[in-house]
Simulated scan of single mutants.
Amino acid sequence: MTKRAVELTDPARELASLASSLIHVGITKQLRVLPALAKGIGVDDNAPELLDLLACVGRRLRSLEGLANSLGEDELDKDQRQELVQAIGSFGQLVHPRNASQDWDHLRHQLLPDKSVTAFRWFSSNAKKFRPLRVIADSDREEALQRLEEVLKEVRTDPNISDWMQAPLVEGLEQAALALKYLHCFGHEAAIAELLLLHQRVEHFIQRNETDAQSGRSSPTITSVLNAVCLAANIFILPHEVAGALERYGSWTQSAVRAIASSKGDYPQRLLPPPRAILPSEVAVGKKRDEDDCDKVAAS
């Protein structure tokens, strides 16, 4: 992963970017809302994950509304708050499944006008103070995603991983990979939550894997999964000075990604210690002890 200067973004700016991409979806005759949303997101409208992605967008909108409502009037005046909350609510209606079959062009102009994107963008400066996010370079995201997909294949084909371990590992890796692939929909918080859940599973399985090693059956693939999760967590880590400010506002995400990333290699190697050189004096002592033992046996 290439080291570069850390750029910051925030939930409002990211949602503004997503809204802008939806606004610029090409209009075709009788285009419905669901296919249009799928096109804007970059997924097939028959893909099973589409509704999950839209639900993620809805949750992010509610989270942003919660942030806006938590600010005092010295940080966000009443009129600005009202305009922002209205933009959030309208955007949420647009991605709601109940409107899936509506006419896209009409509903988009009604629920996601250009002024909504403007409202998100001007709130960005405030949002960045309380919820700064790291700009994830596509190359870093793709590298982490590729590694997750590689270990997913390993888990599926490794005969040394028990079925009861394999199923939750596969599910966790699939969800984590999906979150990275569609990070613009999941958002940082949901993606980190998926990585944290997967990490907790892997930690448990590594302990079990060490126990299995004593009985002659273990799999290095589980450690590979841990390394892949650590790699993915690293792309979300903020500089300490930014993370410290973030934690003061009650965010859990940086504590989570740092805990995941720092776990790499923390598991004790339960191996026998290497052989130690035996000094000549120890040989003499051992020989004398053996002779004494022989004398005792003869006397008995």
Score class of each variant (00 low, 15 high):
Leu71Tyr: 13
Ser139Asp: 01
Asn99His: 03
Gly92Gln: 09
Pro168Arg: 09
Lys128Ile: 07
Asp45Glu: 15
Arg201Gln: 11
Tyr249Ile: 03
Glu143His: 11
Gln200Lys: 13
Leu178Met: 01
Gln30Cys: 10
Glu174Arg: 07
Gly250Thr: 15
Ile27Cys: 09
Leu18Ala: 01
His199Gly: 06
Arg141Gln: 09
Leu112Arg: 03
Pro273Thr: 01
Glu203Lys: 07
Glu49Trp: 10
Glu143Met: 11
Ala243Ser: 12
Ile222Arg: 02
Tyr267Thr: 02
Glu189Gly: 11
Asp52Glu: 15
Tyr182Gly: 02
Trp104Glu: 00
Asn160Met: 03
Glu49Met: 02
Ser300Val: 12
Asp266Tyr: 05
Ser70Tyr: 03
Pro159Ile: 06
Leu107Arg: 06
Trp252Arg: 12
Ala191Pro: 04
Arg32Gln: 00
Leu76Tyr: 01
Gly244Met: 05
Ala299Pro: 06
Asp212Tyr: 08
Leu196Gly: 00
Lys181Trp: 01
Ala261Cys: 05
Ser116Trp: 04
Leu64Lys: 14
Gly265His: 06
Glu143Lys: 09
Ala284Pro: 12
Ser90Leu: 15
Leu169Gln: 10
Ala127Gly: 10
Glu142Arg: 15
Gly244Pro: 05
Val85Arg: 05
Glu282Phe: 03
Ser90Cys: 14
Leu169Ser: 01
Gln82Lys: 09
Val257Ser: 07
Pro159Phe: 03
Ser17Ile: 10
Pro239Gly: 09
Glu194Ser: 14
Ser251Trp: 01
Ser251Lys: 06
Leu18Ser: 04
Leu51Gln: 07
Ser255Lys: 13
Gly250Lys: 05
Leu198Arg: 00
Ser251Gln: 06
Ser300Tyr: 01
Leu8Cys: 00
Arg108Met: 08
Leu107His: 04
Ile278Asp: 08
Thr211Ser: 13
Ala167Gly: 14
Cys56Gln: 07
Pro97Lys: 03
Arg4Pro: 13
Ala55Val: 04
Gln214Pro: 07
Thr157Asn: 10
Val85Tyr: 08
Met1Asn: 13
Met1Val: 12
Phe91Glu: 11
Gln254Glu: 11
Thr253Phe: 07
Lys128Gly: 05
Arg4Tyr: 14
Ala243Asp: 01
Gln207Met: 10
Thr2Leu: 06
Asp295Gln: 06
Val285Gly: 11
Arg134Thr: 02
Ala299Asn: 14
Leu173Asp: 04
Arg13Met: 15
Asp138Leu: 07
Asp293Asn: 11
His109Cys: 04
Leu8Asn: 03
Leu84Glu: 09
Leu111Cys: 02
Arg141Thr: 09
Leu198Asn: 04
Leu18Thr: 06
Arg147Leu: 05
Gln110Ser: 10
Met165Asn: 09
Leu246Tyr: 07
Glu143Phe: 14
Trp252Glu: 12
Ala298His: 05
Ala190Tyr: 02
Ser17Thr: 05
Pro48Arg: 05
Asp292Arg: 11
Pro35Phe: 05
Leu279Gly: 10
Ala233Ser: 01
Ala193Leu: 14
Tyr249Val: 12
Gln146Glu: 13
Asp295Met: 11
Arg289Phe: 05
Arg121Phe: 15
Arg81Pro: 02
Ser125Tyr: 09
Lys287Ile: 13
Ser63Gln: 09
Phe91Asp: 13
Leu148Ser: 01
Leu111Tyr: 00
Leu71Val: 13
Leu107Cys: 01
Glu73Leu: 11
Tyr267Asn: 13
Ser125Met: 12
Lys288Phe: 06
Glu189Thr: 12
Lys296Gly: 10
Leu145Asp: 10
Gln30Thr: 15
Leu22Gly: 00
Glu7Gly: 13
His24Thr: 14
Trp164Glu: 11
Ala232Gly: 12
Ala5Gly: 15
